[in-house]
Simulated scan of single mutants.
Amino acid sequence: MISEEKKEPYFIQFKKDILEILKKGKYKTGDKIPSENEFCESADVSIRTVRRALLELEKDGIIFRRQGRGSFLRTLETKKENAIKGTICVLFSDIEFITRPSFSTILKGMEAACNKLGYHFNMQAIGMRFGKNINELKALGDVLFMKNINGFIISSPVKKEDIQFLRENNMSFITFHKYKGLNVNALSPVNFELAAEIGIEYLAGCAHKRIGVISGYENTSDEIILGNDIFVKTCAKLISEHGIDAVMRTSDYTEEDGYRIANEMLKLAKPPTAIFAVDDLLAKGAVKAIQEEGLKIPEDIAVLGCNDSLNDSFLSSIRMPLFNHGKFAVEILHSLITKNEKPTAEYTEKPELVLRDSTEINKKRKSA
């Protein structure tokens, strides 16, 4: 019997109730079981709860369905522990966002963890639909629930009403953002503060006195995931402490923007002797602009990227643990779904400086 005092979601409770009904009713393989409406009426539960419970039973191989005919008993023996447990869905703002190498690396980590733990991996671009109004929100909810979603990873910020909607439907979820006044399981971001510190300290140690920093646009929702805002603040702070001249520019995380901004920097009366970019795509664009000007890298100008996501044998970069961060997100959500333990959303793996030809020679600047 469903109870609010139990910690399990309603559909899991009712799934167990259906199993008891089937066992006590002496159903045999191939027998038709009660319909969704019959379960609703007899147990006084919502149609959504019944549908999710039946989807769980179908996933476990207990029942099978025939369109227009109903649901039938397959077996009362449960599957092995390594069977598919359901689906984990990642919600993000738009399709363009997942094409960025940095975020796509996070997604690959999520998918790997889903495969290991026995979940299907699903991605959903929410755009303006999620939370636009309550009717559209519930309509999207119906679609997602029909896909047998066990939990959500919310990578883009949503409204408080959206969070409440998921809670009312007993959905497990984690977010990449904190919400004022709401107690949510917010995953700690990858440590871009330390990445910025590693990069600036390295370039300062190479005796660079004028550094160009290319970042993403500040205070935008998705850039919070990729650590842009804290990256900018840390770079500015350390550059000031070292007494280094800085050229700070914002961008749209594309190779084209990196190319455009680097060209602008090179045309300055005092161009930088090093460029540090928040993403490798920006750094790659900067490399192209510098080479087209006939300048040598790193003799004339050094280039340092961040994320190490392009498999570029020339570009020095700060290797971020993005793949493992994605895996960690799924592991946290799995703990919430299974109620195995109280998870901690604090991620501790550190960035690492990877030196290649785009900066390495500048170690000699101190003695030059």
Rank of each mutant, 00 (worst) to 15 (best):
117 L>R: 07
85 K>N: 06
135 N>C: 06
140 L>C: 12
89 C>I: 04
88 I>Q: 01
79 K>P: 00
117 L>E: 09
144 L>F: 10
100 R>G: 06
149 I>Q: 09
79 K>N: 03
131 G>Q: 07
134 I>V: 10
85 K>W: 03
99 T>I: 09
127 G>T: 02
151 G>N: 04
99 T>E: 15
148 N>H: 15
138 K>S: 05
126 I>M: 12
97 F>C: 11
89 C>W: 07
98 I>F: 04
100 R>E: 09
80 K>T: 14
150 N>S: 15
109 G>K: 05
84 I>T: 10
109 G>R: 04
134 I>A: 09
128 M>L: 06
111 E>I: 03
91 L>E: 10
117 L>S: 03
149 I>H: 13
116 K>E: 13
115 N>G: 04
82 N>D: 09
135 N>G: 03
143 V>P: 00
89 C>M: 15
93 S>R: 13
130 F>D: 06
148 N>P: 13
83 A>N: 05
130 F>V: 08
96 E>D: 11
129 R>Y: 10
106 I>C: 10
112 A>Y: 03
130 F>T: 03
142 D>M: 13
101 P>N: 11
140 L>S: 12
108 K>D: 08
107 L>G: 03
151 G>C: 02
131 G>E: 05
120 H>D: 07
112 A>D: 14
132 K>Q: 07
134 I>E: 11
150 N>V: 03
120 H>F: 01
147 K>R: 14
143 V>I: 14
104 S>P: 04
